[in-house]
Structures are given as C-alpha cells and as structure tokens.
Design a protein around this nucleic acid. Structure first.
Lengths: 247, 247
DNA sequence: CACAACATTAGTGTATACAATTGCCCTTGA
DNA sequence: TCAAGGGCAATTGTATACACTAATGTTGTG
C-alpha cells in the first residue's frame, strides 16, 4: 500500500521510543499523541489524508489500542476529524481559519493579560520575564539578526507570553490558547519572518506589556496584548500575499 | 463496592442504549462520551472522584475499550483529568474558574459576533433569528414569567447565540465556546434565575445585537456581545453571594 | 461498452485476556 | 503503639482476536 509510505517519516523516531522504558516514561498513548501531533504540525501527515491505525501502530511500534486513545485525544483537540466507521482524517485548515485563529488568540491572550494584571505576578515570574526581556534586548541589539538571534528571540517570546498566561491562573484559558497555536501554519516557535524594525517594535510591546501588567493597568494591558497578537496576523497575511505574488 | 453506587444513576439509561442498534446509532464510544459528559454536567459524577472504568463499563453495558476512548476524549475536552496509571478523575471547578469561563466566553462570543457582522447572515439565519426574537418577545411579554416562559426563552437564547456563532463560520471558535459552556455550573440551557426586568433587558440586547450584525457594525456588535455575556456573569455572581448569605 | 450485483479485501469497532502498576491491609519488629 | 515492609487485591495499560462496516475489484448481463 502506498499509504504506509506516508508514515515512513515516523518510523525512524519509532525505534527510540521503545528503547528508553524509564520509570517516568509517558504511557504509550500519550507518547503516541505527541508523536502524531508533531507529525501533523510538521506537515508529515498531510491534511485531508486518512490515518491508518494499523500502519500507524506498526510505525510507532505499539498496538492499536494506545493509538486509538491518542487519536481520540487529538480529535478532541481539533487536529483530526473522526467519522464513524471511517476512522480519523487529518483536518485541513484554510488560510482564513488560520487568520481567524489569530483573532481568537489575540482575544484570549488579551483576557489572560488583563487577568494577569488583576492578579499580579509572582516574584519568580517577574524575574523570569525581566531576564527574558534583557535576553530579547540583547538578541535584537545587533546589526544583523541571524538564525541564532532569531532562535533566542523565539525563546524569549515563548517565555514572556507563557509567564503572562501563567499569571492569569486559569487552565481553560491556557488550553484554549494552546488550541489556537496547535494548528498547522501557526507556530510560536517558528517566528514569522519579519524585518528587524518590526521585531524590535514587537519586543518593545513586551516591555510595555510587562510594565502595564506589573502596575495593574488591566484594561490597557488587555488592549495592548490584543493589538500585539493581531499585528502578527497582519504580518503573516502580508507575508503570505507577498509569497503568492513573488515566484 | 461503594464506588459502583455512584454510577447507579447511569444504569437505568444503560438499558435503552443496547436495544436501539439502528443503522445510524452512534458508536459506543461516542454514546459513552455523551453519557459521561451529561453525568458530569448534571453532577451525578461528583468532582474530584475517580472514575472506575470497570464499573462504568458495567453500568453502561459495554466493554472498557469504548469507555476508555470516551474518557480520553473528555479529558481532552477538559472535563476530566488523566493521571498515568491512576486513571481519570472528575475535574473540580472552583467558583473563580467558572467566573473566568464567563470572561473567556464573553471575549470569544464577542469575536464571533464581530466576524458574523463582517461575514453576514444567510437568509435562513436571519429568518430563524427573527422568529426567535419574536418568540422571546412573546415569552417575556406576560405578567408572570413561569417555567414555560423560562423554557421557551431558554430555547430562544440558544437559537440566537447559535445562529450568530454559525454566522462567524469558524469551527475553532465554536469548539472553544463549547468548552466554556460545558462545565459544571455553567449552562446555557439552565437560564440563571433573573428578574423579569433583567430578562427583558437581556432580550433587548438580542434585538440590538441582531440589528448591529445585520447592518455590519462589527465593532459595536463585538462590544455589545461582550457586555451581554459579562452581565450574565455578574448576575450569577450576585446570585451566588445572595444564596450564600440567604439560608 | 456501460453498469449493476456480488465477492473480496482492507480497515475500523469492540470484547476479552493478560501484564503491569498502584493502593491497601496485614504482619512483623522495634 | 507505630513504622516499615511485604503480599494481595483492585485497577489501569496494552495486546490480540474477532465482528462488522466500508471500499474496491471483478464478473456477468443488458
């Protein structure tokens, strides 16, 4: 079958999954969920294609039982669709859906930021944010922003947004935001390419957000965070349009 | 065992699950997910208690396999927690979490309303909303709002919010909003008790929301919907405080 | 040649068996 | 009396077998 070839990319990593077996090793179904999720986000499993449980179980070196559990989890997360007696299908996300996801995320992170401002930051959160802010300053204060600086700034970005989200102290909020990030095409880690000027402006937002949250200016913090995230959407949109007319 | 007694309430319905077996019958795991979800939302399965797969499978008249699939789904939905080798635990929601859920929902429904205003309503959606608006007018235009009127208004409420959400044409948004509603203590169906004056004001919001969406005033629609949902939170909060000091 | 009915096969849905882990109770010793 | 340890029961994790559904190919007929 040619469908099994689609899963070939997973097989290599499969070997290393069976060897560890440490006491804290995640259960197979959890590891399977992570593996399949990564495969979808990385584009290895192409949207619209059906997921064959037998092949997948062979490739991941486990039986169908944990596989099915993982697939049900991913279905509830919205990454794959389930049809009775037809199994699971990798969900397709239109560009419009991706753009909408930024709207949703902007709104949610805005709320998170407001709650964070109302509830305050722990000493550790403050410290980690301040460190991240300095790291960001350093990464962006160079003539040429190379891959190393980009990677560093990516971590800075994750840390700051993560700390503000943690300060909101609400799990549902975290999960909803994760939904908006866990979709093909959206990825905090892979920073959308942007000019140094825009990146510095975004990082300036981080400074201002921190100041607003720390001083408890909840409404302003919410609005700025919304704008901050939406600007990424605009950048993505411009980038996409450019890419379409480019080649 | 005393744990099995906890599931007794499920057993009665279990009988009718096995008899139908129509061609369009949902798979066991789906029906199990629905059943357990309802049980949690209805408070039959108490927060904090562990879910015993064997007992549950007996009570629902199916094997553990579809049960486990259903539980994984519910875990991804956030209704229950999963701990490796310890199984599933009904999640507890503090009052603060419930209140936060309203904030999240307000924000999300606001976005939905904005998108609906931008994207427009279909003829059918318009018609169904207009019908619902009239039904609501009729239900509230009485001297004494009794259980029948309350139930009728509940359906009106669901229809209007549902149509506006559908008009937003975004699945992730729908799913995220469902998350905020599918939690114990929050329930669109069970309208929070409110005075006739407040109910009429809320329904007036519905009229204004429809007008704004229909005329494409996206920003105003978003803001009004936010306020509309938040007001329910305030009502709930006042109600809870009153109930605590009452008896 | 087109098409429909059937046979075949691939694939999902569920049940059951067994392995592994956890939690509990009882014993034993200080 | 209490703490530590060990064994047993309960419960979860995974594998496998089988039933059932859907898809596919094949063959016979108009």
């Amino acid at each position: 079958m040619r469908q099994s070839e689609k899963h070939d990319d997973l097989r290599d990593d499969a070997a290393c999954a069976t060897d560890d077996a440490g006491p804290d090793a995640p259960s197979r179904s959890l590891s399977a969920a992570d593996r399949v999720r990564d495969a979808i986000l990385a584009g290895v499993l192409t949207p619209g294609s059906r997921i064959n449980e037998v092949h997948l179980s062979r490739d991941l070196g486990m039986s169908r039982t944990p596989i099915r559990a993982a697939l049900h989890t991913l279905a509830a997360e919205g990454l794959i669709d389930y049809e009775r007696n037809r199994g699971f299908i990798v969900r397709e996300f239109a560009l419009q859906a991706v753009l909408d996801a930024y709207e949703i995320r902007a709104s949610l992170e805005g709320v998170a930021c407001r709650l964070a401002a109302e509830r305050g930051l722990t000493a550790e959160q403050k410290q980690r944010i301040e460190t991240a802010l300095r790291d960001g300053d350093r990464a962006l204060d160079v003539d040429r922003i190379g891959p190393a600086e980009l990677a560093a700034y990516g971590m800075v970005n994750v840390t700051i947004h993560g700390m503000l989200l943690a300060a909101a102290q609400n799990r549902m909020l975290s999960e909803a935001i994760r939904m908006t990030i866990n979709m093909p095409g959206v990825n905090t880690r892979n920073i959308v390419p942007a000019s140094p000027r825009i990146m510095r402006r975004r990082h300036d937002d981080h400074h201002r957000l921190y100041d607003l949250v720390r001083s408890g200016e909840a409404v302003r913090a919410e609005l700025l965070m919304r704008e901050h995230v939406i600007s990424v959407k605009s950048g993505l949109l411009a980038n996409t349009e450019q890419r379409e007319t480019d080649p």
